[in-house]
Design a protein around this nucleic acid. Structure first.
Lengths: 256, 256
DNA sequence: CGCATATTTGAAATAGTTCAAGTTGAGTGG
DNA sequence: CCACTCAACTTGAACTATTTCAAATATGCG
Protein backbone atom coordinates (compact mmCIF):
# COMPACT_ATOMS: atom_id res chain seq x y z
CA UNK A 1 0.00 0.00 0.00
CA UNK A 2 2.38 2.63 -1.14
CA UNK A 3 4.77 1.55 1.53
CA UNK A 4 6.46 -1.31 -0.29
CA UNK A 5 10.10 -0.70 -0.98
CA UNK A 6 9.61 -1.16 -4.69
CA UNK A 7 11.16 1.68 -6.56
CA UNK A 8 12.73 3.16 -3.46
CA UNK A 9 15.97 4.94 -4.13
CA UNK A 10 18.51 7.12 -2.45
CA UNK A 11 17.64 10.77 -2.35
CA UNK A 12 19.81 13.75 -1.76
CA UNK A 13 19.02 15.31 1.57
CA UNK A 14 21.11 18.26 0.55
CA UNK A 15 18.54 19.03 -2.05
CA UNK A 16 15.71 18.71 0.39
CA UNK A 17 17.50 21.09 2.68
CA UNK A 18 17.53 23.62 -0.05
CA UNK A 19 13.91 22.97 -0.98
CA UNK A 20 12.32 23.41 2.42
CA UNK A 21 14.41 25.85 4.29
CA UNK A 22 12.85 25.84 7.74
CA UNK A 23 10.91 22.70 8.34
CA UNK A 24 11.20 19.65 10.54
CA UNK A 25 13.12 17.65 8.00
CA UNK A 26 15.58 20.41 7.60
CA UNK A 27 15.81 20.58 11.35
CA UNK A 28 16.54 16.91 11.40
CA UNK A 29 19.48 17.08 9.06
CA UNK A 30 20.73 20.61 8.84
CA UNK A 31 21.44 21.86 12.36
CA UNK A 32 24.85 23.09 13.36
CA UNK A 33 25.69 19.77 14.92
CA UNK A 34 25.27 17.91 11.64
CA UNK A 35 27.93 18.42 9.02
CA UNK A 36 28.04 17.36 5.40
CA UNK A 37 29.49 13.97 6.21
CA UNK A 38 26.83 13.23 8.79
CA UNK A 39 24.12 14.27 6.42
CA UNK A 40 25.50 11.84 3.88
CA UNK A 41 25.14 9.08 6.42
CA UNK A 42 21.55 10.01 7.09
CA UNK A 43 21.04 10.20 3.38
CA UNK A 44 22.02 6.59 2.97
CA UNK A 45 19.23 5.24 5.15
CA UNK A 46 16.47 7.36 3.63
CA UNK A 47 14.33 5.80 0.90
CA UNK A 48 12.02 7.37 -1.61
CA UNK A 49 8.96 5.45 -2.72
CA UNK A 50 6.53 6.16 -5.51
CA UNK A 51 4.15 9.09 -4.99
CA UNK A 52 0.78 8.52 -3.37
CA UNK A 53 -2.27 9.43 -5.37
CA UNK A 54 -5.05 11.49 -3.86
CA UNK A 55 -7.00 9.40 -1.37
CA UNK A 56 -4.29 6.76 -1.11
CA UNK A 57 -3.19 5.83 2.39
CA UNK A 58 0.34 5.88 3.70
CA UNK A 59 -0.75 3.70 6.59
CA UNK A 60 -3.84 2.42 8.32
CA UNK A 61 -4.54 2.31 12.03
CA UNK A 62 -3.09 -0.78 13.64
CA UNK A 63 -0.52 -1.35 10.96
CA UNK A 64 2.89 -2.27 12.40
CA UNK A 65 5.31 0.60 12.70
CA UNK A 66 8.65 0.42 10.96
CA UNK A 67 9.51 3.87 9.73
CA UNK A 68 8.75 7.54 9.97
CA UNK A 69 8.19 9.63 6.88
CA UNK A 70 9.01 13.07 5.63
CA UNK A 71 6.73 14.83 3.18
CA UNK A 72 8.51 16.02 0.05
CA UNK A 73 5.56 17.45 -1.84
CA UNK A 74 1.80 17.39 -1.62
CA UNK A 75 -0.15 17.10 1.61
CA UNK A 76 -1.12 14.38 4.06
CA UNK A 77 -3.78 14.27 6.71
CA UNK A 78 -3.65 11.95 9.68
CA UNK A 79 -6.78 11.04 11.56
CA UNK A 80 -7.77 8.95 14.51
CA UNK A 81 -10.75 6.66 14.11
CA UNK A 82 -13.15 6.74 17.01
CA UNK A 83 -14.58 3.62 18.64
CA UNK A 84 -17.84 4.34 16.85
CA UNK A 85 -16.62 5.00 13.34
CA UNK A 86 -16.26 8.77 13.41
CA UNK A 87 -12.87 10.11 12.57
CA UNK A 88 -11.00 13.02 14.05
CA UNK A 89 -8.44 14.81 11.92
CA UNK A 90 -5.30 15.17 14.00
CA UNK A 91 -2.93 16.98 11.70
CA UNK A 92 -2.16 18.12 8.18
CA UNK A 93 1.37 17.54 6.99
CA UNK A 94 2.93 19.88 4.48
CA UNK A 95 6.22 19.38 2.63
CA UNK A 96 9.21 19.15 4.92
CA UNK A 97 7.29 17.88 7.90
CA UNK A 98 7.83 14.57 9.66
CA UNK A 99 4.99 12.09 9.94
CA UNK A 100 4.11 9.12 12.14
CA UNK A 101 6.01 10.21 15.22
CA UNK A 102 3.05 9.06 17.28
CA UNK A 103 3.57 5.45 16.23
CA UNK A 104 6.94 4.90 17.87
CA UNK A 105 5.52 4.39 21.31
CA UNK A 106 3.15 1.54 20.65
CA UNK A 107 4.91 -0.09 17.71
CA UNK A 108 1.86 0.30 15.51
CA UNK A 109 0.26 3.23 13.75
CA UNK A 110 -2.56 4.75 15.78
CA UNK A 111 -3.72 7.00 12.95
CA UNK A 112 -4.68 6.63 9.34
CA UNK A 113 -2.51 8.79 7.13
CA UNK A 114 -3.94 9.72 3.77
CA UNK A 115 -2.85 11.81 0.82
CA UNK A 116 -5.05 14.85 0.14
CA UNK A 117 -3.45 15.29 -3.25
CA UNK A 118 -0.65 13.62 -5.16
CA UNK A 119 2.03 13.40 -2.52
CA UNK A 120 5.56 12.08 -2.39
CA UNK A 121 7.26 11.15 0.82
CA UNK A 122 10.52 9.63 1.83
CA UNK A 123 10.72 6.77 4.22
CA UNK A 124 13.12 6.75 7.14
CA UNK A 125 13.41 3.25 8.66
CA UNK A 126 13.20 3.82 12.36
CA UNK A 127 15.56 1.14 13.57
CA UNK A 128 18.29 2.50 11.34
CA UNK A 129 17.54 6.03 12.43
CA UNK A 130 17.95 4.93 16.04
CA UNK A 131 21.28 3.29 15.32
CA UNK A 132 22.51 6.29 13.42
CA UNK A 133 21.34 8.59 16.22
CA UNK A 134 23.72 6.90 18.58
CA UNK A 135 26.60 7.60 16.27
CA UNK A 136 25.62 11.19 15.57
CA UNK A 137 24.86 13.14 18.76
CA UNK A 138 23.55 16.02 16.70
CA UNK A 139 21.01 13.80 15.03
CA UNK A 140 19.84 12.33 18.30
CA UNK A 141 19.41 15.78 19.72
CA UNK A 142 17.45 16.95 16.72
CA UNK A 143 15.19 13.96 16.74
CA UNK A 144 14.28 14.65 20.35
CA UNK A 145 13.80 18.30 19.54
CA UNK A 146 11.45 17.58 16.69
CA UNK A 147 9.39 15.23 18.79
CA UNK A 148 9.26 17.69 21.62
CA UNK A 149 8.12 20.38 19.25
CA UNK A 150 5.39 18.05 18.08
CA UNK A 151 4.19 17.74 21.66
CA UNK A 152 4.26 21.48 22.04
CA UNK A 153 2.34 22.04 18.80
CA UNK A 154 -0.24 19.60 19.99
CA UNK A 155 -0.61 21.65 23.16
CA UNK A 156 -1.17 24.76 21.13
CA UNK A 157 -3.76 23.05 18.99
CA UNK A 158 -5.54 21.90 22.09
CA UNK A 159 -5.69 25.47 23.27
CA UNK A 160 -7.17 26.50 19.95
CA UNK A 161 -9.83 23.85 19.79
CA UNK A 162 -10.71 24.03 23.41
CA UNK A 163 -11.72 27.56 24.18
CA UNK A 164 -12.03 29.68 21.11
CA UNK A 165 -14.81 30.83 18.85
CA UNK A 166 -15.24 29.56 15.31
CA UNK A 167 -13.80 32.81 13.94
CA UNK A 168 -10.73 32.56 16.10
CA UNK A 169 -10.13 28.96 15.16
CA UNK A 170 -10.28 29.69 11.48
CA UNK A 171 -8.18 32.82 11.82
CA UNK A 172 -5.51 30.90 13.72
CA UNK A 173 -5.57 28.16 11.13
CA UNK A 174 -5.20 30.54 8.23
CA UNK A 175 -2.32 32.34 9.90
CA UNK A 176 -0.71 29.02 10.68
CA UNK A 177 -0.94 27.89 7.08
CA UNK A 178 0.27 31.26 5.93
CA UNK A 179 3.39 30.86 8.03
CA UNK A 180 4.01 27.31 6.93
CA UNK A 181 3.70 28.23 3.28
CA UNK A 182 5.80 31.32 3.86
CA UNK A 183 8.62 29.32 5.40
CA UNK A 184 8.76 27.25 2.25
CA UNK A 185 9.24 30.36 0.20
CA UNK A 186 5.67 30.51 -1.08
CA UNK A 187 3.32 33.44 -0.74
CA UNK A 188 2.05 34.13 2.75
CA UNK A 189 -1.08 35.80 1.48
CA UNK A 190 -2.22 33.70 -1.44
CA UNK A 191 -2.35 29.95 -1.35
CA UNK A 192 -4.45 26.91 -2.06
CA UNK A 193 -5.98 25.03 0.84
CA UNK A 194 -4.99 21.42 0.32
CA UNK A 195 -7.85 20.07 2.43
CA UNK A 196 -11.62 20.05 2.09
CA UNK A 197 -13.83 22.26 4.22
CA UNK A 198 -15.02 19.13 5.87
CA UNK A 199 -11.54 18.06 6.93
CA UNK A 200 -10.72 21.58 7.95
CA UNK A 201 -13.82 21.81 10.11
CA UNK A 202 -13.16 18.42 11.60
CA UNK A 203 -9.63 19.43 12.47
CA UNK A 204 -10.78 22.65 14.12
CA UNK A 205 -13.64 20.98 15.95
CA UNK A 206 -16.34 22.67 13.88
CA UNK A 207 -19.24 21.40 11.79
CA UNK A 208 -18.60 21.83 8.08
CA UNK A 209 -21.51 24.26 7.91
CA UNK A 210 -19.93 26.44 10.55
CA UNK A 211 -16.64 26.42 8.70
CA UNK A 212 -18.36 27.54 5.56
CA UNK A 213 -20.30 30.29 7.29
CA UNK A 214 -17.18 31.55 9.03
CA UNK A 215 -15.37 31.78 5.71
CA UNK A 216 -18.23 33.82 4.37
CA UNK A 217 -18.21 36.14 7.36
CA UNK A 218 -14.50 36.78 6.80
CA UNK A 219 -15.12 37.50 3.15
CA UNK A 220 -17.95 39.89 4.03
CA UNK A 221 -15.69 41.67 6.47
CA UNK A 222 -13.12 42.06 3.72
CA UNK A 223 -10.55 39.97 5.57
CA UNK A 224 -10.04 37.58 2.71
CA UNK A 225 -10.97 36.56 -0.78
CA UNK A 226 -11.99 32.97 -1.44
CA UNK A 227 -12.40 31.11 -4.71
CA UNK A 228 -12.96 27.45 -4.00
CA UNK A 229 -9.82 26.25 -2.27
CA UNK A 230 -7.89 29.29 -3.38
CA UNK A 231 -7.51 31.80 -0.56
CA UNK A 232 -6.10 35.30 -0.42
CA UNK A 233 -5.53 36.94 2.94
CA UNK A 234 -6.38 40.62 2.54
CA UNK A 235 -5.97 41.80 6.11
CA UNK A 236 -3.43 39.72 7.96
CA UNK A 237 -3.33 42.32 10.68
CA UNK A 238 -7.03 42.03 11.42
CA UNK A 239 -6.78 38.26 11.44
CA UNK A 240 -4.01 38.47 13.99
CA UNK A 241 -6.19 40.80 15.99
CA UNK A 242 -8.94 38.21 16.13
CA UNK A 243 -6.64 35.60 17.60
CA UNK A 244 -5.49 37.92 20.36
CA UNK A 245 -8.95 38.54 21.75
CA UNK A 246 -10.11 36.44 24.62
CA UNK A 247 -12.37 33.75 23.25
CA UNK A 248 -14.19 33.53 26.50
CA UNK A 249 -13.89 35.78 29.54
CA UNK A 250 -12.99 32.88 31.82
CA UNK A 251 -12.46 33.51 35.47
CA UNK A 252 -9.43 31.27 35.41
CA UNK A 253 -5.90 32.52 35.77
CA UNK A 254 -5.34 34.47 38.89
CA UNK A 255 -2.17 34.50 40.86
CA UNK A 256 1.02 34.46 38.91
CA UNK B 1 12.38 27.93 42.73
CA UNK B 2 12.48 24.38 43.93
CA UNK B 3 14.80 23.61 41.13
CA UNK B 4 18.07 24.52 42.76
CA UNK B 5 20.33 21.59 43.30
CA UNK B 6 20.46 22.22 47.02
CA UNK B 7 19.60 19.08 48.89
CA UNK B 8 19.60 16.99 45.76
CA UNK B 9 20.70 13.46 46.37
CA UNK B 10 20.96 10.16 44.66
CA UNK B 11 17.81 8.14 44.66
CA UNK B 12 17.32 4.52 44.02
CA UNK B 13 15.49 4.01 40.75
CA UNK B 14 15.03 0.42 41.75
CA UNK B 15 12.73 1.65 44.46
CA UNK B 16 10.84 3.86 42.09
CA UNK B 17 10.36 0.93 39.79
CA UNK B 18 8.77 -0.95 42.60
CA UNK B 19 6.65 2.02 43.63
CA UNK B 20 5.08 2.80 40.29
CA UNK B 21 4.78 -0.39 38.41
CA UNK B 22 3.49 0.71 35.04
CA UNK B 23 4.21 4.34 34.43
CA UNK B 24 6.42 6.41 32.17
CA UNK B 25 9.28 6.49 34.59
CA UNK B 26 9.16 2.80 34.92
CA UNK B 27 9.09 2.60 31.18
CA UNK B 28 12.14 4.73 31.07
CA UNK B 29 14.22 2.56 33.33
CA UNK B 30 12.70 -0.87 33.52
CA UNK B 31 12.26 -2.18 29.99
CA UNK B 32 13.84 -5.41 28.90
CA UNK B 33 16.66 -3.60 27.22
CA UNK B 34 17.79 -2.01 30.48
CA UNK B 35 19.49 -4.27 32.97
CA UNK B 36 20.46 -3.64 36.54
CA UNK B 37 23.80 -2.15 35.65
CA UNK B 38 22.26 0.25 33.17
CA UNK B 39 19.69 1.32 35.68
CA UNK B 40 22.46 2.11 38.11
CA UNK B 41 23.99 4.40 35.55
CA UNK B 42 20.71 6.19 35.03
CA UNK B 43 20.36 6.36 38.76
CA UNK B 44 23.58 8.31 39.06
CA UNK B 45 22.37 11.24 37.00
CA UNK B 46 18.97 11.58 38.65
CA UNK B 47 18.62 14.15 41.43
CA UNK B 48 15.97 14.55 44.06
CA UNK B 49 15.12 18.03 45.25
CA UNK B 50 12.97 19.16 48.14
CA UNK B 51 9.22 18.66 47.76
CA UNK B 52 7.10 21.41 46.25
CA UNK B 53 4.35 22.83 48.38
CA UNK B 54 0.86 23.25 47.00
CA UNK B 55 0.76 26.12 44.54
CA UNK B 56 4.52 26.19 44.16
CA UNK B 57 5.81 26.15 40.60
CA UNK B 58 8.30 23.70 39.16
CA UNK B 59 8.86 26.08 36.28
CA UNK B 60 7.43 29.16 34.64
CA UNK B 61 6.86 29.79 30.97
CA UNK B 62 9.96 31.06 29.25
CA UNK B 63 12.32 29.66 31.82
CA UNK B 64 15.37 28.02 30.24
CA UNK B 65 15.15 24.27 29.93
CA UNK B 66 17.77 22.09 31.51
CA UNK B 67 16.08 18.97 32.78
CA UNK B 68 12.99 16.84 32.62
CA UNK B 69 11.29 15.64 35.78
CA UNK B 70 9.56 12.55 37.05
CA UNK B 71 6.79 12.82 39.62
CA UNK B 72 7.40 10.69 42.70
CA UNK B 73 4.36 11.66 44.73
CA UNK B 74 1.66 14.30 44.65
CA UNK B 75 0.31 15.89 41.49
CA UNK B 76 1.37 18.56 39.03
CA UNK B 77 -0.58 20.49 36.46
CA UNK B 78 0.96 22.13 33.45
CA UNK B 79 -0.75 24.96 31.68
CA UNK B 80 -0.16 27.19 28.73
CA UNK B 81 -0.71 30.91 29.22
CA UNK B 82 -2.64 32.58 26.45
CA UNK B 83 -1.56 35.84 24.86
CA UNK B 84 -4.37 37.50 26.76
CA UNK B 85 -3.81 36.15 30.23
CA UNK B 86 -6.13 33.16 30.18
CA UNK B 87 -4.56 29.85 30.88
CA UNK B 88 -5.28 26.46 29.40
CA UNK B 89 -4.56 23.38 31.46
CA UNK B 90 -2.62 20.96 29.28
CA UNK B 91 -2.04 18.00 31.52
CA UNK B 92 -2.12 16.61 35.02
CA UNK B 93 0.88 14.59 36.07
CA UNK B 94 0.51 11.78 38.56
CA UNK B 95 3.32 9.85 40.26
CA UNK B 96 5.56 7.98 37.86
CA UNK B 97 4.92 10.28 34.93
CA UNK B 98 7.52 12.33 33.10
CA UNK B 99 7.15 16.09 32.91
CA UNK B 100 8.46 18.90 30.69
CA UNK B 101 8.95 16.83 27.54
CA UNK B 102 7.52 19.75 25.59
CA UNK B 103 10.42 21.99 26.56
CA UNK B 104 13.18 20.10 24.77
CA UNK B 105 12.35 21.49 21.37
CA UNK B 106 12.63 25.18 22.07
CA UNK B 107 15.12 25.11 24.90
CA UNK B 108 12.73 26.89 27.23
CA UNK B 109 9.64 25.85 29.09
CA UNK B 110 6.46 26.71 27.21
CA UNK B 111 4.19 25.82 30.10
CA UNK B 112 3.88 26.70 33.75
CA UNK B 113 4.07 23.60 35.89
CA UNK B 114 2.54 23.87 39.32
CA UNK B 115 2.02 21.57 42.27
CA UNK B 116 -1.63 20.87 43.09
CA UNK B 117 -0.63 19.42 46.43
CA UNK B 118 2.63 18.69 48.19
CA UNK B 119 4.61 17.02 45.45
CA UNK B 120 8.06 15.55 45.17
CA UNK B 121 9.82 15.09 41.88
CA UNK B 122 13.18 13.97 40.72
CA UNK B 123 15.19 15.95 38.29
CA UNK B 124 16.84 14.35 35.27
CA UNK B 125 19.37 16.72 33.69
CA UNK B 126 18.68 16.51 30.01
CA UNK B 127 22.18 16.86 28.66
CA UNK B 128 23.33 13.97 30.82
CA UNK B 129 20.32 11.94 29.80
CA UNK B 130 21.22 12.50 26.18
CA UNK B 131 24.79 11.39 26.72
CA UNK B 132 23.69 8.32 28.62
CA UNK B 133 21.15 7.52 25.92
CA UNK B 134 23.92 7.15 23.42
CA UNK B 135 25.64 4.61 25.64
CA UNK B 136 22.49 2.67 26.42
CA UNK B 137 20.45 1.83 23.31
CA UNK B 138 17.61 0.61 25.48
CA UNK B 139 17.37 3.94 27.21
CA UNK B 140 17.38 5.87 23.96
CA UNK B 141 14.64 3.67 22.61
CA UNK B 142 12.55 4.11 25.71
CA UNK B 143 12.96 7.85 25.73
CA UNK B 144 11.67 8.02 22.18
CA UNK B 145 8.84 5.67 23.05
CA UNK B 146 7.75 7.77 25.98
CA UNK B 147 7.79 10.94 23.92
CA UNK B 148 5.89 9.29 21.14
CA UNK B 149 3.31 8.08 23.59
CA UNK B 150 2.97 11.62 24.85
CA UNK B 151 2.18 12.73 21.31
CA UNK B 152 -0.36 9.97 20.97
CA UNK B 153 -2.01 10.83 24.30
CA UNK B 154 -2.25 14.39 23.17
CA UNK B 155 -4.06 13.23 20.05
CA UNK B 156 -6.52 11.31 22.14
CA UNK B 157 -7.13 14.29 24.37
CA UNK B 158 -7.76 16.42 21.34
CA UNK B 159 -10.36 13.95 20.21
CA UNK B 160 -12.02 14.15 23.60
CA UNK B 161 -12.10 17.90 23.83
CA UNK B 162 -13.04 18.44 20.26
CA UNK B 163 -16.20 16.55 19.61
CA UNK B 164 -17.78 15.19 22.72
CA UNK B 165 -20.50 16.23 25.11
CA UNK B 166 -19.79 17.39 28.63
CA UNK B 167 -20.93 14.04 30.01
CA UNK B 168 -18.63 12.12 27.74
CA UNK B 169 -15.67 14.31 28.56
CA UNK B 170 -16.13 13.85 32.27
CA UNK B 171 -16.76 10.13 31.91
CA UNK B 172 -13.60 9.71 29.87
CA UNK B 173 -11.63 11.70 32.40
CA UNK B 174 -12.89 9.69 35.34
CA UNK B 175 -12.10 6.43 33.60
CA UNK B 176 -8.68 7.72 32.67
CA UNK B 177 -7.92 8.67 36.26
CA UNK B 178 -9.30 5.37 37.45
CA UNK B 179 -6.87 3.54 35.22
CA UNK B 180 -3.92 5.68 36.21
CA UNK B 181 -4.62 5.17 39.89
CA UNK B 182 -5.24 1.50 39.28
CA UNK B 183 -1.89 1.03 37.61
CA UNK B 184 -0.24 2.40 40.71
CA UNK B 185 -1.96 -0.23 42.79
CA UNK B 186 -4.57 2.11 44.21
CA UNK B 187 -8.30 1.63 44.04
CA UNK B 188 -9.86 2.01 40.62
CA UNK B 189 -13.22 2.96 42.04
CA UNK B 190 -12.46 5.24 44.98
CA UNK B 191 -9.98 8.06 44.78
CA UNK B 192 -9.40 11.68 45.50
CA UNK B 193 -9.34 14.13 42.62
CA UNK B 194 -6.12 16.06 43.02
CA UNK B 195 -7.37 19.02 41.01
CA UNK B 196 -10.07 21.63 41.49
CA UNK B 197 -13.28 21.57 39.50
CA UNK B 198 -12.06 24.69 37.83
CA UNK B 199 -8.85 23.08 36.62
CA UNK B 200 -10.71 19.97 35.63
CA UNK B 201 -13.20 21.95 33.60
CA UNK B 202 -10.47 23.99 32.02
CA UNK B 203 -8.63 20.83 31.04
CA UNK B 204 -11.75 19.31 29.50
CA UNK B 205 -12.76 22.49 27.76
CA UNK B 206 -15.78 23.12 29.98
CA UNK B 207 -16.94 26.02 32.12
CA UNK B 208 -16.62 25.22 35.83
CA UNK B 209 -20.39 25.45 36.16
CA UNK B 210 -20.85 22.82 33.51
CA UNK B 211 -18.37 20.56 35.23
CA UNK B 212 -20.25 20.90 38.47
CA UNK B 213 -23.61 20.25 36.86
CA UNK B 214 -22.30 17.22 35.03
CA UNK B 215 -21.01 15.76 38.28
CA UNK B 216 -24.43 16.28 39.78
CA UNK B 217 -26.13 14.59 36.85
CA UNK B 218 -23.86 11.57 37.26
CA UNK B 219 -24.64 11.42 40.97
CA UNK B 220 -28.37 11.67 40.26
CA UNK B 221 -28.08 8.83 37.78
CA UNK B 222 -26.36 6.75 40.41
CA UNK B 223 -23.15 6.52 38.42
CA UNK B 224 -20.99 7.88 41.20
CA UNK B 225 -20.79 9.21 44.70
CA UNK B 226 -19.04 12.50 45.33
CA UNK B 227 -17.90 14.10 48.57
CA UNK B 228 -15.82 17.15 47.82
CA UNK B 229 -12.81 15.89 45.93
CA UNK B 230 -13.44 12.33 47.01
CA UNK B 231 -15.04 10.27 44.24
CA UNK B 232 -16.42 6.77 44.12
CA UNK B 233 -17.29 5.22 40.78
CA UNK B 234 -20.41 3.12 41.29
CA UNK B 235 -21.08 2.03 37.74
CA UNK B 236 -17.89 1.82 35.74
CA UNK B 237 -19.74 -0.09 33.07
CA UNK B 238 -22.25 2.66 32.46
CA UNK B 239 -19.47 5.23 32.36
CA UNK B 240 -17.71 3.20 29.70
CA UNK B 241 -20.97 3.04 27.83
CA UNK B 242 -21.20 6.82 27.75
CA UNK B 243 -17.80 7.15 26.16
CA UNK B 244 -18.66 4.71 23.39
CA UNK B 245 -21.65 6.65 22.14
CA UNK B 246 -21.16 9.01 19.27
CA UNK B 247 -20.89 12.50 20.66
CA UNK B 248 -22.19 13.96 17.47
CA UNK B 249 -23.58 12.12 14.43
CA UNK B 250 -21.09 13.68 12.05
CA UNK B 251 -21.32 12.91 8.39
CA UNK B 252 -17.57 12.54 8.22
CA UNK B 253 -15.80 9.26 7.71
CA UNK B 254 -16.85 7.54 4.58
CA UNK B 255 -14.65 5.33 2.51
CA UNK B 256 -12.35 3.05 4.39
C1' DC C 1 -14.41 33.03 63.98
C1' DG C 2 -14.29 35.17 59.65
C1' DC C 3 -12.40 36.38 55.22
C1' DA C 4 -11.26 34.52 50.72
C1' DT C 5 -11.78 30.99 47.53
C1' DA C 6 -14.06 27.18 45.66
C1' DT C 7 -18.34 25.10 44.42
C1' DT C 8 -23.10 24.86 43.44
C1' DT C 9 -27.51 26.33 41.56
C1' DG C 10 -30.91 28.80 38.73
C1' DA C 11 -32.33 31.44 34.74
C1' DA C 12 -31.34 33.85 30.51
C1' DA C 13 -28.47 34.35 26.46
C1' DT C 14 -25.94 32.41 22.56
C1' DA C 15 -22.69 30.17 19.64
C1' DG C 16 -22.70 26.40 17.22
C1' DT C 17 -25.05 22.24 15.60
C1' DT C 18 -28.45 19.84 13.15
C1' DC C 19 -31.65 19.21 9.49
C1' DA C 20 -33.14 20.08 5.05
C1' DA C 21 -32.78 22.14 0.75
C1' DG C 22 -30.34 24.26 -2.60
C1' DT C 23 -25.91 25.43 -5.43
C1' DT C 24 -21.61 24.70 -7.28
C1' DG C 25 -18.04 22.08 -9.34
C1' DA C 26 -15.27 18.42 -11.12
C1' DG C 27 -15.22 14.32 -13.67
C1' DT C 28 -17.46 11.20 -17.43
C1' DG C 29 -19.45 9.62 -21.34
C1' DG C 30 -22.06 10.62 -25.22
C1' DC D 1 -19.19 20.67 -26.06
C1' DC D 2 -23.03 19.46 -23.58
C1' DA D 3 -25.85 16.94 -20.35
C1' DC D 4 -25.41 13.87 -16.25
C1' DT D 5 -23.81 12.43 -11.81
C1' DC D 6 -21.83 12.49 -7.47
C1' DA D 7 -19.75 14.82 -3.98
C1' DA D 8 -18.44 19.04 -1.92
C1' DC D 9 -20.02 23.19 -0.52
C1' DT D 10 -23.29 26.79 0.85
C1' DT D 11 -27.39 28.74 2.94
C1' DG D 12 -31.45 29.23 5.91
C1' DA D 13 -34.11 28.23 10.01
C1' DA D 14 -35.08 25.73 14.15
C1' DC D 15 -32.95 23.66 18.07
C1' DT D 16 -29.97 22.73 22.04
C1' DA D 17 -25.98 22.04 24.80
C1' DT D 18 -23.16 24.94 26.97
C1' DT D 19 -21.91 29.37 28.51
C1' DT D 20 -22.69 33.41 30.96
C1' DC D 21 -24.43 36.10 34.68
C1' DA D 22 -25.86 36.50 39.29
C1' DA D 23 -26.17 34.96 43.70
C1' DA D 24 -26.36 31.52 47.29
C1' DT D 25 -23.61 27.94 49.81
C1' DA D 26 -19.75 25.46 51.13
C1' DT D 27 -15.04 24.98 52.36
C1' DG D 28 -10.52 25.90 53.83
C1' DC D 29 -7.27 28.32 56.36
C1' DG D 30 -5.00 31.93 59.18
Amino acid sequence: MGESGSGSQLIRLHEIRKACSACSLRELCLPVALDRKDTDELDRIVERSRPLRKGEKLCRPGQPFSAIYAVLSGCLKSSLLGHDGESQVIAFHLPGELVALDAIGSGSHPTAIEALETTSVCRIPFSQLEILSRKLPGLQHQLLRVMSKEIFDEHKLLQVVSRRTAEQRLAIMLINLSQRFGRRGLSRTRFRLPMSRLDLGNYLGLAPETTSRTFRRFVDQGLLKVTGKEVELLDLHALHGLTEEAGLPSRHARRC
